[in-house]
Design a binder for these strands. Sequence first.
RNA 1: AAGGGUAGACGGGUGGUCGCUCCGCUUUAGGCGGGGAGGAAAGUCCGGGCAUCGAGGGGCAGGAUGGUUCCUAACGGGAACCGGGGGUAACCCCAGGGAAAGUGCAACAGAAAAUAUACCGCCCUUUAAUCGGGGUAAGGGUGAAAUGGCGGGGUAAGAGCCCACCAGUCCCGCGGUGACGCGGGAGCUUUGUAAACCCCAUCCGAUGCAAGGCCAAAGAGGGUGCCGCCACGGCGGCAUGGAUGGCCCGUCCAGUACCCGGGUAGGCCGCUUGAGGUCCGGGGUGACCCGGAUCCUAGAGAAAUGAUCACCGUUUCCGCCUUCGGGCUGGAAAACAAAACCCGGCUUAUAGUCUACCCUUUUUU
RNA 2: UGGGGUGUCGUCAAGCGGUAAGACACAGGCCUUUGGAGCCUGCAUUCGGAGGUUCGAAUCCUCCCGCCCCAG
Length: 120
Amino acid sequence: MICPMTRTLKKQERLKRGDFRAAKWTKHSETAHFVLLAADNRCNVKRFAVTIRKKTGVAVVRNRARRIVKEFFRLHKDLFGEGSNSLIRIKGLPQNLGMREMEPELQILLSSMKRRTSIT
RNA sequence: AAGGGUAGACGGGUGGUCGCUCCGCUUUAGGCGGGGAGGAAAGUCCGGGCAUCGAGGGGCAGGAUGGUUCCUAACGGGAACCGGGGGUAACCCCAGGGAAAGUGCAACAGAAAAUAUACCGCCCUUUAAUCGGGGUAAGGGUGAAAUGGCGGGGUAAGAGCCCACCAGUCCCGCGGUGACGCGGGAGCUUUGUAAACCCCAUCCGAUGCAAGGCCAAAGAGGGUGCCGCCACGGCGGCAUGGAUGGCCCGUCCAGUACCCGGGUAGGCCGCUUGAGGUCCGGGGUGACCCGGAUCCUAGAGAAAUGAUCACCGUUUCCGCCUUCGGGCUGGAAAACAAAACCCGGCUUAUAGUCUACCCUUUUUU
RNA sequence: UGGGGUGUCGUCAAGCGGUAAGACACAGGCCUUUGGAGCCUGCAUUCGGAGGUUCGAAUCCUCCCGCCCCAG
């Protein structure tokens, strides 16, 4: 098994086709542009995916937003719950598509989730 | 120098750290090396390859195209030319067959809108005068369009009624592969619309890689088999049946075996070497073709090509300095847009930079 | 990825070659002490955009733009 704290994003850490319909998703937190959904999985790996609607923008913009969120998961894997499938849904696009603009909002998204899980 | 036309190129670069994907080699924790978006990858508007369906061979229906000759695997694409239109010019634009095969439509206005007609007018006639009868398409007016235009002759007034020139139609000759051009002659003349139906010519079978091929869980199906009935042809049942029992619960017994096709979840292939790129030589006005050498250049699948740092470079804006020539180791910004089976086009989007040739105007020589 | 549909006033819409119906809403007036109701009048510089065909285009043709739906 791979070390959970390494900054990698392997294929087994990504959610596949069957994982989306099988699991029951619960909404954890929401900001202006993102929604965090989560579901338990039986294996003790943090798994992750990004979804974005086609209506949100053209292919270039959608790819850019998804890659930045993926990069955030890779660099801040400790913020995500252990042994759970995480799904970040992009509702709308921020003004500037860059790590500097999107990182603080994603920090807020994840910190509020962590607080809720620590309470329960 | 200014303005313009045509054709084309580029679409920031280099290096580190972390990360993704494919391939190869090692080893199977992993490690090392190499490849990794575009000119439009886009819109999906056309044409092919490839694959399956039923040999898609003929016909109908339906659809598409429409000057000529060529290029091409093919095209609704391209090249050259012809005709028409625009521009001072370089050059650009055009779905550009047929209206005497037939049908339809032409609002309003106008007398009359497609084979008929006469509102005003003009002329002849009748009458005391008007009315009336007749001739006329020159003039007026209407309209997008009024029976070819203009001038002369002619006439009661007029009219292709006659003549010259021009436009159009047909015929002949010459030139051109051809569209067509030039010249001559004839009868004197046919509204427009086919991006209205239609006619003619040419082309098109349908569906698309989620095509299609291979492996193949589970569930359901069929056969063998077993049981029961039988008119011996078959029929019914097998996730339940039989015994006990009126029925339910319960208990006991039997059976739940093998094979088959189909192909769902999932996996593998199709999947990137091709009407391929680059260079050189030759042919052609050109699109393009021929020959030789050389190169291999993305293959994901909830979908890879990213993040960050440093340096360099171009342009613009802001700020600061200035000897007004500029300078800054200040700051910010820098297009349109991302493969999804693959090619050939078309169309649309595109910050900025550069190259070549040509045209016009002004100035100088 | 492939395949369809649609766009007309603020809203719902008719018209499908010949001056863009109608309803609701809105604005003004009449009536009323005032409001509502009722009655009258007005309201599309042009039919999503740009070209073309035609005497004439919302309508026909071509290319773009937006929205909606379907297959898996």
